[in-house]
Design a binder for these strands. Structure first.
Length: 571
RNA sequence: GCGCCUGUAGCCUAAUGGACAAGGCAUCUGACUUCGGAUCAGAAGAUUACAGGUUCGACUCCUGUCAGGCGCGCCA
């Protein structure tokens, strides 16, 4: 099944080629108009062709439309402004397109990713540190990309690349031996591990002997010392248990959980290859890849003490993923601070002959109004606390709005709303914008927010029930759509744009495109709901409108599930 | 010092180089004794940081300036 955008783009492309075989340009397509007065889709390429063909843009558009002839989906076209070609969709065609969306469990979304493997690297918290609200963006954005790609038919491998290796474990082990409180460890393990780490780290800054001991512990760990190895294993397991609890709350699942330690054995081989192929060489005792051709600063792949860096691990990781899974894309979702790092790693990977499409999807850091988060200032907000707060606030609203609901059900609904609000506040904006965190903003339950969308969905569910109760013997299955009111047509256009929106959001790695779309759909529906009667409409019209409600509900549910947001039937 | 990113109404955000810059919050006016008022209809609010340039057309691309953030050979 093709999207409307694809269908009309092909039509225009063909028409341009026929009209101007000598001067056809690449990338001829249509886009959705930003205002209904300009039709439903527009093609903007007559202006560009006009220059090459030495004709006026409107003349070009005219000739193109002569060659275009009629299209089953198109009511009429017009030439406007400097040479825009505006396309108006035929109502009958729209009505039959709605039937297709209604009857398709995929809401008309094609499997454009079929046969392709994409590896997604996201969340990736550090072991022995609690997850805080800075981790939520990678997790929530990565998971939305995960869900969208899977839905489009890609073979997705979600990999949680834990920070489970590195120099901090020397300090960690030493601190654990001296400072750990067993009681605290059993009640709040990761919190206790962090406390121990911070204490040991602070001592290492003033006590040189302590730092030396810490280094020795690290060397022992890396040499495979059984005792240190076991401690390390314990840290990892305790952390994973806590992470899993959060992932369950967020409904996030990984196919692979391979921390940095997984690639340890491969590091010397990577450096050997880099050296033998002339990509890296000795410099001041370290092994360094020089990237002048890419105009990037040098990248250390082995320290002068023989240890390896993050870059080396990431290269080993890429090699391993390529040989085991053969992905066509590897996508990293991390914060903006790692832009340079990934530019370097990708440049080196290309020199090593890696051909997969490597993408770094970075997002802006989360800040507080008074500045950045820092452990030292003690203003870090723990992720679990954040989720608790979201659910608590949602519960108060549910209790006020639906007092007749059973308390157990209220809690369940509040959970879906609270978590949905948290996710939506991250997903509804461009990932690259810097976020200044405020409780009020993150947990907003009004306006452009997840609860608005969930509310629209629940109202439809309610309408469906009322309809079934009042008209028990009518089936919607074979009723025809009759788009009479202007807002119904607007709603129908919005509905059939779902497939192209999902594709665009996934391919540009911007979940906010889908979030925007869903908000617009829900807002259009709310206008319809508020201004057009349907249970009281005459038979026929009534069925058409109830069925329209049902399609909106299906698309909302499907779309929100691609963002990882639930849609309770009652809220 | 060099590099990357960001700058859009009071606040928060949107806009593959396309038409008059789109929403939300807050503010102000309204919504029938009919479908859930977490809603809807409407009002007001913008020199898209600033100055140049490219283009038929610039929030978007290029150059410079200012402001904020981040990064830059032995952290991850």
């Amino acid at each position: 099944m093709q999207t409307i955008e694809q269908t009309l783009s092909a039509w225009m492309r063909e028409s341009f080629t026929q009209a101007f075989p000598e001067t056809t340009i690449h990338g001829i397509s249509v886009v959705a108009t930003n205002s209904e007065q300009f039709g439903d889709y527009q093609c903007n390429h007559a202006m560009a062709v006009a220059k090459l063909a030495r004709k006026s843009p409107r003349q070009v558009a005219e000739v193109v439309l002569q060659h275009a002839g009629n299209h089953a989906a198109v009511e009429r076209t017009e030439i406007a402004g400097p040479g825009f070609i505006n396309i108006f969709i035929r109502r009958e065609w729209l009505e039959s397109a709605l039937v297709l969306v209604d009857e398709d469990v995929r809401c008309g979304v094609p499997l454009v990713g079929h046969g392709k493997t994409v590896l997604l690297d996201y969340s990736s918290p550090n072991v022995a540190k609690p997850m805080h609200i800075g981790h939520i963006r990678s997790t929530v954005i990565g998971n939305a990309l995960d869900r969208m790609h899977r839905f489009l038919g890609y073979h997705v491998l979600a990999d949680n690349h834990l920070g489970d290796w590195g120099t901090q474990f020397g300090i960690m082990i030493l601190g654990y031996r001296h400072y750990v409180n067993p009681d605290a460890l059993s009640t709040e393990p990761v919190e206790e591990l962090e406390r121990v780490y911070v204490k040991s780290y602070e001592r290492s800054r003033t006590d040189p002997a302590w730092l030396t001991f810490a280094r020795q512990e690290l060397v022992k760990l890396q040499a495979g010392d059984p005792e240190n190895r076991e401690l390390w294993q314990r840290f990892v397991e305790l952390s994973l248990q806590e992470f899993d609890r959060i992932y369950r709350r967020l409904d996030v699942r990984f196919d692979l959980v391979r921390g940095e330690s997984y690639y340890n054995q491969a590091l010397p081989g990577v450096v050997d290859r880099l050296c033998s192929r002339g990509i890296a060489r000795e410099s001041e005792g370290a092994t360094v890849a020089f990237l002048e051709e890419e105009s990037l600063p040098p990248c250390i792949v082995r320290k002068s003490d023989g240890g390896y860096n993050y870059a080396t691990t990431d290269l080993a990781t890429i090699e391993s993923r390529m040989s085991e899974f053969h992905p066509s894309k590897i996508v990293y979702v991390t914060d903006e601070r790692q832009q340079l790092h990934f530019k370097q790693v990708f440049a080196i990977a290309r020199r090593l002959g890696i051909t997969a499409d490597l993408q770094h999807i970075w997002f802006g850091l989360m800040r507080l109004p008074e500045g950045t988060f820092s452990t030292r200032q003690g203003n870090v907000i723990k992720l679990e606390k954040y989720l608790d707060e979201a659910e608590t606030r949602a519960l108060a609203v549910v209790q006020a709005g639906s007092p007749e609901m059973a308390p157990e059900r209220q809690r369940e609904v509040a959970r879906a709303i609270g978590i949905g609000a948290v996710k939506y506040s991250d997903l509804s904006q461009n990932p690259q914008s810097v976020i200044t965190f405020t409780w009020e903003k993150a947990l907003s339950l009004e306006g452009n927010s997840a609860p608005y969308l969930q509310y629209a969905y629940a109202r439809i569910a309610s309408v469906q029930d009322k309809y079934r109760a009042q008209f028990p013997n009518t089936s919607l299955g074979h009723c025809v759509f009759r788009l009479e009111e202007a807002v119904e047509r607007t709603l129908a256009i919005a509905i059939v744009r779902f497939p192209e929106t999902v594709i665009k959001a996934a391919e540009s790695y911007k979940p906010n495109i889908l979030a925007d779309y869903l908000y617009n759909l829900a807002a259009t529906y709310s206008t319809f709901y508020q201004n057009v009667p349907f249970l009281k409409a005459p038979e026929g019209i009534r069925e058409s409108r109830i069925r329209l409600c049902r399609v909106v509900a299906n698309v909302l549910k499907q779309g929100l599930s691609l963002l990882g947001i639930e849609t309770p039937e009652r809220i």
